Computed example of a mutant assay.
Amino acid sequence: MRIPPYYRKPGWQRFFAGVAIGTLAGWAFFIFQFGAIHEELVVDLNKQRLLIAEQHEQIDLLREAEQAKNQENERKLTIQDVSITFTNEKSSKLNELALYELKQEAESEMHLLKNKNIESAVEGKELIKRTIENKTYTSGDKQYKLKIEEMYIYTMLELYVRIEAAE
């Protein structure tokens, strides 16, 4: 078996030369396009990295600003409600009406604290204590004094008081 002598015919020589040149031209075109696309992708990736870094910085700045605002708002919080709970409700053996009257009178003493700044309420904690403890409360024909056992001041002023008979 023998290979045909195509190298002697000029038509075949042009064909093979065209295939070789076309292959080289195609490969060069592919390399050029791949390089251009790769370069665009690298540029886009770097832009995105810079954008992400800027956004992380902006997020950090916004978080710091938000934390500062939250701290400022927390300092400026106000008392929204006053809650009075009797610790010796059962042992005092008072009926519900007497307990309700005592609670209403004590809450009426504290109504000025509603919508007041928490800081000022904390500073006037002793004043609140004296206001409740130094007053004699009347329910029916008996008089009572209230003794504050615990006090929690935040957006809600919680007072835990003990009922004592007035002397």
Results as ranks from 00 to 15, higher is better:
residue 1 M to K: 11
residue 2 R to Y: 04
residue 4 P to I: 02
residue 5 P to W: 04
residue 5 P to S: 01
residue 6 Y to I: 12
residue 10 P to R: 01
residue 11 G to D: 15
residue 11 G to I: 14
residue 12 W to Q: 07
residue 12 W to H: 04
residue 12 W to V: 05
residue 14 R to W: 02
residue 15 F to R: 10
residue 15 F to A: 11
residue 16 F to S: 08
residue 17 A to F: 12
residue 17 A to K: 06
residue 20 A to P: 03
residue 20 A to I: 10
residue 20 A to D: 09
residue 22 G to E: 06
residue 23 T to L: 15
residue 23 T to W: 12
residue 24 L to A: 15
residue 25 A to Y: 05
residue 27 W to D: 08
residue 28 A to K: 11
residue 29 F to C: 06
residue 30 F to L: 13
residue 30 F to P: 10
residue 33 Q to D: 03
residue 35 G to E: 08
residue 35 G to P: 08
residue 39 E to H: 08
residue 41 L to M: 08
residue 43 V to G: 07
residue 43 V to M: 09
residue 44 D to N: 15
residue 44 D to P: 03
residue 44 D to R: 15
residue 46 N to A: 15
residue 46 N to K: 12
residue 47 K to W: 09
residue 48 Q to T: 15
residue 50 L to M: 12
residue 50 L to K: 09
residue 51 L to N: 13
residue 55 Q to H: 09
residue 55 Q to D: 06
residue 55 Q to V: 00
residue 56 H to C: 06
residue 58 Q to F: 02
residue 59 I to H: 07
residue 62 L to N: 12
residue 64 E to Q: 12
residue 64 E to W: 04
residue 67 Q to H: 04
residue 69 K to L: 04
residue 77 L to T: 10
residue 78 T to S: 10
residue 80 Q to C: 08
residue 83 S to I: 09
residue 85 T to M: 04
residue 87 T to E: 13
residue 87 T to L: 10
residue 88 N to C: 06
residue 92 S to D: 10
residue 92 S to P: 13
residue 92 S to R: 14
residue 96 E to A: 02
residue 97 L to Y: 05
residue 98 A to P: 04
residue 99 L to G: 10
residue 100 Y to C: 07
residue 103 K to W: 05
residue 106 A to I: 02
residue 108 S to N: 14
residue 109 E to L: 04
residue 111 H to I: 09
residue 111 H to W: 07
residue 115 N to W: 00
residue 116 K to T: 14
residue 120 S to T: 14
residue 121 A to Y: 04
residue 122 V to D: 05
residue 123 E to Y: 07
residue 126 E to A: 00
residue 127 L to V: 01
residue 128 I to H: 00
residue 129 K to H: 11
residue 130 R to P: 00
residue 130 R to T: 02
residue 131 T to G: 09
residue 132 I to T: 13
residue 132 I to H: 06
residue 134 N to Q: 03
residue 135 K to Q: 01
residue 136 T to K: 04
residue 142 K to P: 01
residue 145 K to W: 01
residue 147 K to L: 12
residue 149 E to W: 04
residue 150 E to M: 14
residue 152 Y to R: 08
residue 153 I to G: 00
residue 155 T to W: 00
residue 157 L to Q: 00
residue 157 L to D: 00
residue 157 L to Y: 00
residue 158 E to V: 07
residue 158 E to S: 06
residue 160 Y to L: 14
residue 160 Y to G: 08
residue 162 R to D: 11
residue 164 E to D: 11
residue 164 E to R: 05
residue 164 E to H: 00
residue 164 E to S: 03
residue 165 A to C: 04
residue 165 A to Q: 04
residue 165 A to E: 05
residue 166 A to H: 06
residue 166 A to E: 13
